[in-house]
Amino acid sequence: MRIFDPHIHMSSRTTDDYQAMYDAGVRAVVEPAFWLGQPRSSVESFVDYFDSLVGFERFRASQFQIAHHCTIALNPKEANDPRCAPVLDLLPRYLAKDGVVAVGEVGFDSMTAEEEKAFARQLEMAVEFGLPALVHTPHRDKLAGTRRTLELVRAAGLPMAHALVDHLNEVTVDLVDDAGAWLGFSIYPDTKMDPDRMVAILQRRGLDRVLVNSAADWGRSDPLTTRRTGEAMLASGFSEDDVDRVLWRNPVEFFAQSGRLLLDVPDVDAGATFAGNSLLRGERA
């Protein structure tokens, strides 16, 4: 089973996770820019985070033969903080970089005017840079937030085929499906979706435009729920090819629209360094 996890916050995970992911079949990931659990208080904090997403984290993943990509954005939650919002002016510098495969996570958290302003502006940037957008849907007031999300995507002139609307569930899936956007599902140990509910949705509406992710981060989450979903699909009668389509070919097709996928990961050189930091904790012999 080869797996492309299209949404996972690897900066929050350990090398043990990278190893377990590789052993489970994960060969590529996308790490969306989001908040850190602990709120940021300045633009500079974003800059260091973005640097890590295009630098050290890509290197760390490569040491486990996993291709790492990222998406760059001001996230909805911190769009509400006037100390953070000016990072919008810096985004073009990062959206121009290699390995940045979408604008994201954008979207709504509390559906404020500030969130909508940042969301709309970043959708325009996605159009300008020829990038897809990875859209987070809110935990609260999810259906209304999803509806407004689709209106903003249309207003920005972003093709629906370039929009991935994430964290969907049984209540929001049809709305996004009917709009023609890509459908993201986060499979969590306790909240959001679980593997069996995911399989039920796949049985009902098919495999087109569906992306399954672990959305694993610094909270209680599991980087192997993609694999668990593939196993649940097989157990319920889907074929190996069906699983490959959902867990590999669909995310490749979506993010390839950026023209910036980096799926060739060189063989691991255990002594390799990123900015002089190896993962070996050893001095040069």
Binding site: P92, L95, A96, K97, D98, P266, A272
Partner: peptide, 20 residues
Amino acid sequence: IRVRFPAAAREIARTPGTSP
């Protein structure tokens, strides 16, 4: 240059592969 410089390898030319 703020967007052309980062995109230069992709938009213009690069040596294939990576080298430390």
